[in-house]
């Protein structure tokens, strides 16, 4: 197999006396959907926050490789730089949209760094230079393309907070994709979705994996989503990795069955 996109090595995160993540290692590959599962309090979200820079890990290395072999040590980077330079995008367990701004505006903000450059850090923008106008139009087209793809184009000019829950989830994924990531991190993307929406989400994630040249890392409670779409599953329990493999392998792992008390059967 080629070089992994993301290598997490001996990641450890302690809060005071509590070790939330304990020496966890795993890889994420390009064009793969990798899922991290585990019971409540297993340290999934903490690991996730370490990768996306919202927490500074106590120990361990997180390396992201771009296609041009550029390597980023994520554990040393500030959160916004991880998105800006390393190109890691994420969504949140409890959706974080810019509620008072429209769907289109949400998608434009995701292209902030690109547009800032195009507006010559605002100076060109004030004078509305042709190059800025082009960049703005291109950004709008890109936003439109993603709205079409997730199916919320008819709500483009509505405030994000007015969207139904399922559409908000989709918008958050579209917004993350507008940053042109190489790694897309999704924190429980199926939480609160009904079966139909869950189906649509699976299709969307598969299509992103197959056509956008990204690696997808997701945390999920919903086993049906995980088992169905994941190429690779990591199981955490009490901060430690207890299993790692394909859906079938994980499903038959006695350690996993024990951790879930047998409820892992979908």
């Amino acid at each position: 197999m080629s070089q992994p996109l993301l290598s997490v090595n001996q990641l450890t995160m302690r809060f005071g006396g509590l070790t939330a993540v304990d020496a966890v290692s795993f890889d994420v590959h390009r064009n793969h959907i990798t899922a991290v599962i585990g019971p409540n309090g297993a340290g999934k979200t903490t690991a996730f926050n370490c990768i996306t820079g919202f927490y500074k890990p106590t120990d361990g290395q997180i390396v992201l490789r771009h296609k041009d072999d550029n390597e980023f040590k994520l554990e040393e980077m500030e959160d916004f730089r991880i998105s800006q330079h390393a190109k890691v995008a994420r969504t949140f367990q409890n959706i974080r949209l810019f509620g008072g701004m429209t769907v289109l505006e949400n998608l434009m903000i995701a292209q902030h760094n690109h547009l800032m450059k195009a507006s010559a850090y605002t100076i060109g923008g004030i004078f509305n230079t042709p190059s800025y106008q082009r960049a703005q139009e291109a950004a709008k087209q890109k936003a439109l393309a993603w709205m079409d793809r997730v199916g919320i184009t008819d709500r483009a000019d509505d405030p994000a907070a007015a969207l139904p829950y399922g559409a908000q989830r989709k918008l958050e994924i579209a917004r993350a994709m507008c940053t042109d990531p190489v790694l897309l991190c999704l924190d429980e993307p199926a939480a609160g979705l009904n079966p139909k929406e869950s189906e649509e989400l699976n299709a969307l994630l598969r299509s992103i994996r197959d056509t956008n040249d990204v690696g997808i890392l997701l945390i999920e409670h919903d086993m049906s989503v995980v088992m169905e779409i994941s190429d690779h599953i990591i199981v955490l329990d009490y901060g430690r990795k207890i299993s790692d493999g394909t859906a079938t392998e994980v499903r038959n792992d006695p350690a996993v069955i024990k951790a879930y008390l047998g409820v892992v059967e979908e």
Partner: peptide, 29 residues
């Protein structure tokens, strides 16, 4: 009025709406 319609102005408003989301999108808050 012009600034508000530029990326910088949108980022200001986004900051008011949700700072953490801003950082997740690579905005230097």
């Amino acid at each position: 009025a012009r600034l508000r319609r530029l990326p910088i102005g949108r980022a200001w408003e986004a900051l008011r709406e949700d700072e953490i989301a801003c950082r997740s999108l690579g905005i230097n808050t």
